[in-house]
Write a protein that binds this DNA or RNA. Structure first.
Lengths: 238, 238
DNA sequence: CGCACCTTTGAAAGGTTTCAACTTCTGTGG
DNA sequence: CCACAGAAGTTGAAACCTTTCAAAGGTGCG
């Protein structure tokens, strides 16, 4: 289940994304490369971390997608946030923190333990920005679920993913890979898979997006963003 | 608008709550008392902090209720979280952090700047636990909005508030003050005020709760919690 | 080629919203 | 202490969005 890997390509997405959150010095890059050297692989549907279990160390998702989810006793599932390549999760100021949600791989993934805090000031700043982003994404998710209809939820989530993937350097010409099934999307959006399917068709017919295979192309993200009242994410002054 | 106050009673709720998150030593208590001495009052509907503005210092809500909210361009409002007496908000590891939501007083409130981090190890631990709680509440809010129906949302929120108020020593015999209008609840629950009203009546008829004036009494919180699959909040091991 | 998984479709039921009016509270001023 | 105004709570009927259930197409991979 845990396969140590030696692929130096692995960490590049994480480095790319983190360096856009805060400038990384040579020291930070070295720490990241070292961490990536002991990455391991998980298959889709495997759990990276289960709710209530203790968080040994922050994780970096080097490759692939994952989801933080909560399950209700009757089986209903809510994805509270999606993790895309380069994301860091599990950073806490608490000694012996416990996970408040289950993290499950949505695709085959490669993960590694993140360098601990305190080892690099540049990295610590990147972690702080990353955490602030994560909180902003949670607030955005709440607003989506509470006050948007199905069409708005879908487009708003895709725009968020676009922005996030852009930070990792994974967007080209408004198109990007989204390896989510409609069922997974429905768990993230608080909808049924059937309804996601119908609204996605409506969005395609309206010319808002093209979705072929795993790749999405947004026709006019700027316009869509304006219509939804999305504003650029800023978490610190200056 | 800002009235310095000299009421030594003020900080007691905050002390009480924080000390249940982590044991406070004499030093921490002194810092809290000092901070509470320069509290100020705001009327209901006034903003404590507006979205996008910079967070000068963490805030302690000494008294009264507030809400963190996001407003959509067409006026729809989503309350992302409620702040109850004793809550701390705005703790960040970021230099010059910006607020990602507007904080508005729901009742007349007294707030003060929290002692800065680094001044007391005990207090820092309390802040860390408080932050972990806040994150768990956001996840709970997401699950409520995404996967619960109106009745479940209402009861689940009330149970969460009960637990939180309990930490501040504000629950007696399963009853506690909830100074929320049905409209405010609807903004927190992603529903219309009309529907909140109807579902509240249903809950009363079903004997699940009594709500007179501003005071709520839950008939059988343990049973309700079980039915909703709520589990005790734990954010750290040991 | 066949099984598993994902997407698509239809029709009916259901939960929630909308709109508009009415009633009950609560606090303030006469 | 009562009258009044504004805020909050309540009610009804119809429209609307989303879900449910069930089944039929696609697609990819061993």
């Amino acid at each position: 289940m845990i396969n140590a890997r030696r692929n130096s390509e692995e960490g590049s997405t994480a480095r790319s994304r983190l360096s856009r959150l805060a400038p990384l010095d040579a020291d930070a890059v070295r720490l990241l490369e070292e961490a990536a050297r002991t990455s391991y692989a998980l298959r889709a549907r495997q759990e990276l971390l289960s709710a209530g279990s203790s968080i040994e160390a922050p994780l970096i998702l080097l490759d692939g997608w994952a989801a933080r989810a909560r399950i209700l006793p009757d089986g209903r599932r809510q994805i509270v946030s999606l993790l895309v390549p380069g994301d860091v999760t599990g950073v806490s100021d608490l000694p012996e923190p416990l996970s408040s949600a289950t993290i499950v791989a949505l695709t085959p993934v490669h993960v590694c333990a993140a360098p601990p805090r305190g080892a690099s000031a540049a990295l610590d700043l990147a972690y702080a920005v990353s955490r602030a982003h994560d909180e902003a994404f949670l607030l955005a998710q709440i607003t989506r679920l509470g006050r948007m209809n199905a069409q708005e939820r879908i487009m708003d989530l895709l725009l968020e993913l676009r922005d996030r993937l852009d930070l990792a350097g994974l967007v080209r010409d408004n198109s990007f890979d989204v390896p989510l099934t409609q069922e997974t999307m429905s768990d993230a959006l608080g909808l049924t898979p059937v309804h996601v399917n119908r609204m996605l068709q409506a969005a395609r017919k309206a010319g808002d997006l093209v979705w072929t295979g795993k790749r999405i192309t947004l026709s006019d993200p700027a316009r869509s963003a304006r219509e939804l009242g999305r504003v650029p994410l800023r978490v610190r002054a200056g």
